[in-house]
């Protein structure tokens, strides 16, 4: 990272007791909006929220491979916007991808990268 800041703003993935990785986020009790963040109120309607875990599986909404130097990163690296099943759209790194992940393809959350980024792997 370019420089240290206080709290890490990225979505937090954790391993559930069943061994699967999930994103710890929120669900709005008023409008059912979901988000990959533990914010105090619903970003859409300001309604009350409750903690909710999302994943581990989802569908790639779009994807790219970043091929330029970005501070703190080693190119190339593959990114995808993943619509987690019944959950939010999250930005994730893609395991072992030299080319962009297939849009519409199924993926599964796995252990985060060494840098702490949410990460997915393609399902066969």
């Amino acid at each position: 990272m370019p420089h240290a800041i206080g709290a890490d703003p990225r979505p937090r993935t954790r391993r559930s007791p069943d061994g699967r990785w999930r994103v710890a986020g929120l669900r709005c009790r008023a409008c059912a909006e979901v988000a990959a963040y533990t914010w105090p109120v619903c970003p859409r309607c300001r309604g009350p929220v409750e903690p909710a875990d999302f994943g581990p599986t989802g569908t790639v909404w779009s994807s790219t491979v970043v091929r330029i130097p970005v501070p703190g990163r080693t190119p190339p690296y593959a990114l995808a916007y993943v619509d987690l099943d019944d959950g939010p759209r999250v930005l994730a790194h893609v395991v072992d991808a030299a080319e962009p992940a297939t849009i519409g393809g199924r993926v599964r959350l796995t252990a985060p990268t060494a840098d702490g980024d949410p990460r997915v792997e393609a399902l066969a």
Binding site: P9, R10, H93, P118
Partner: peptide, 10 residues
């Protein structure tokens, strides 16, 4: 770095 997705490399 204070934006989640930019912090994530976007």
């Amino acid at each position: 770095p204070s934006d989640p997705e930019q912090r994530g490399g976007l």
